[in-house]
Design a binder for these strands. Structure first.
Lengths: 337, 337
DNA sequence: TTGTAAGCGTTATCAT
DNA sequence: ATGATAACGCTTACAA
């Protein structure tokens, strides 16, 4: 590979001058610029990024922590981030924590040891007080996942309000026996549960604690919980899930039991993933602005590293959307209207 | 950040010695090793990877070209590659071509300009003769996609045989009017089509050229093609698709038309993605060994870059699996048996 | 066994 | 406006 020295020699100039045209510095005559450009051309010169990084003390790399790549929600989020990053000559280092606290801590070390220029968390496993200190070592952004009382900027959707609206939709369909599968300890899950509770309380419905399920994430979990629910004496007639995957699994299990969705059990998903339109009946769900979430988070990150913008706390709330389909709309009822 | 010089000073030794213990060189006394380790510990020293890369003339980065991250097939493939890469201290640079020839060429440049140590293609848009020359610039591996007459190693599934088996399954269910949606120009698609043709010919069924559809990739495409098919006079009674996404779309469209799957139209998918078990009826499909594919491709790559193994051509064929579910098995028939 | 010193390819500082 | 030169942090001949 040709180096800057080769170009300099060919152009009859110094490495410094070549470097100047490379970086669009002022104070280079058009004449020399042309000379340099020609030399680069003929040598097919491409700057060595590793050398640039060493010299500039940058890595041009942003670490993105996700639980798994194969969860469509995170795949779409990554895709959106990637588009902005690529446009800004930044590489993405995709870090799959696989829900492991240890792996998460290892990846956070990337920031302390300056192996990346910044780090975006889309979800986290450890306690926040173990994570936050790392924000002192470099730019850190929280995207999707939520945390109160932190200086770290947050780009997220209002899970509380979205869940409230989703649950209220169920209530409006006449349901009063409503289960939920968002009983986890993450702030995101807590917000969802709070929204669910608010809708119930507001409607004068008392909350049944044993109808709030935890650790329900994928299709299999959804199947399992639905079977549990249907076995309850005086079973719920509706479920507010935290994921389209879970909701899809529930629909499958309900059918296997010969139950009708939504007449025997109404189900509402979350995310509006492609699967929501594939299952039968199609899922009523809460659309998350995934592209906007990823795009905005990366833009905030770039503001930090490129323009050294102050890391003054900011929280950007992006809008949700209630998408009404068939899994909550009884045909019996719509006929009777 | 502490540098190797800081460690050396603290340990009262030279940078060379520190470097030696860092790289597990022999000929360092246990005494000095301990000294160095203690110094590293107390300074929380971490080697600067950028400097190592510059000095070693390596990037420790492998580029993986995929069409899009959000296609589950590629997400699973990437995940498998990532596991092997991480274990070997290699970074993955995920390059989304978004089906653009230009982007693909740009990403190939990464190999020529030594910005990555190797490159894995999982699919490609340009003609092979435009791509192959890049294999002279560094290790290149083909995974999933197929090419005859090349020195580039290939890790793939036998699409021809798998498609033959899949189509034969349809024939065994009594179908003789079978459409297919694998009319594309990639070698992978050509192989699938060839397998489809072989099964038909072998059964004495003549191939209807206008029942072979091209450019059918996602759920929407599947819906569209199914509607086209059902409008044909003397419509096909079965479809061999090239993707679970397409097959799922077809099922949705068939239902919307009031058609029964598999009785009015039998459908077979490809890949065995999660969606195959979610649609109703569940998809009969051909399981691809995605994890094995990704894992093996990365291992072959590592053999090249770590052990400088000869790039003598090799083709590794991984086994497929016909997974029989409901979208091809008529209940009428099984009762009559 | 350990140390010295050159060099990987850039860029920025300081002269000129 | 241009050039010489010293870093950036590491590894590896070569010397001792």
């Amino acid at each position: 590979m040709a180096t800057i020295a080769d170009v300099a020699k060919r152009a009859g100039l110094s490495r410094a001058t070549v470097s100047r045209v490379l970086n669009n510095h002022p104070n280079v005559t058009e004449d020399k610029k042309r000379l340099v450009r020609e030399a680069m051309e003929s040598l097919k010169y491409v700057p060595n990024t590793t050398a640039q990084r060493l010299r500039n003390q940058r890595t041009d790399t942003i670490a993105i922590l996700v639980p798994v790549l194969t969860n469509p929600f995170f795949a779409y989020l990554l895709e959106a981030m990637d588009m902005v990053a690529t446009k800004n000559h930044l590489q993405l280092l995709i870090c799959q924590t696989r829900y492991s606290k240890q792996k998460e801590m290892d990846f956070l070390e990337l920031l302390r040891t300056k192996q990346v220029d910044g780090l975006i968390l889309t979800s986290y496993e450890n306690e926040w007080k173990k994570i936050e200190p790392y924000s002192a070592f470099g730019p850190m952004v929280l995207c999707n996942e939520y945390e109160r009382n932190t200086k770290v900027p947050i780009i997220r959707m209002d899970q509380f309000e979205a869940s409230y609206i989703g649950t209220r939709h169920l209530i409006e369909q006449g349901h009063i026996r409503i289960a939920c599968t968002c009983g986890d300890k993450s702030n995101l899950a807590k917000d969802r549960q709070a929204g669910y509770r608010k809708a119930l309380v507001e409607a004068g419905i008392s909350v049944q604690e044993d109808w709030i399920f935890s650790n329900v994430f994928d299709i299999e979990d959804g199947k399992r919980v639905l079977r549990t629910i249907m076995n309850l004496k005086e079973a719920p007639t509706a479920v507010f899930t935290g994921s389209d995957q879970v909701a899809a699994g529930m629909i499958m299990a309900a059918k296997a039991l010969g139950k009708n969705v939504p007449d025997d059990i109404a189900i509402i998903g979350f995310d509006d993933q492609p699967i929501a339109r594939v299952v039968e009946p199609a899922l009523t769900t809460i659309r998350q602005p995934i592209e906007e979430l990823g795009k905005t988070a990366m833009e905030v990150m770039i503001d930090f590293i490129a323009f050294k913008k102050e890391v003054n706390h900011q929280e950007i709330l992006l809008p949700y959307d209630l998408v009404i389909r068939d899994s909550t709309m009884s045909k019996l009822k719509s006929i009777s209207i």
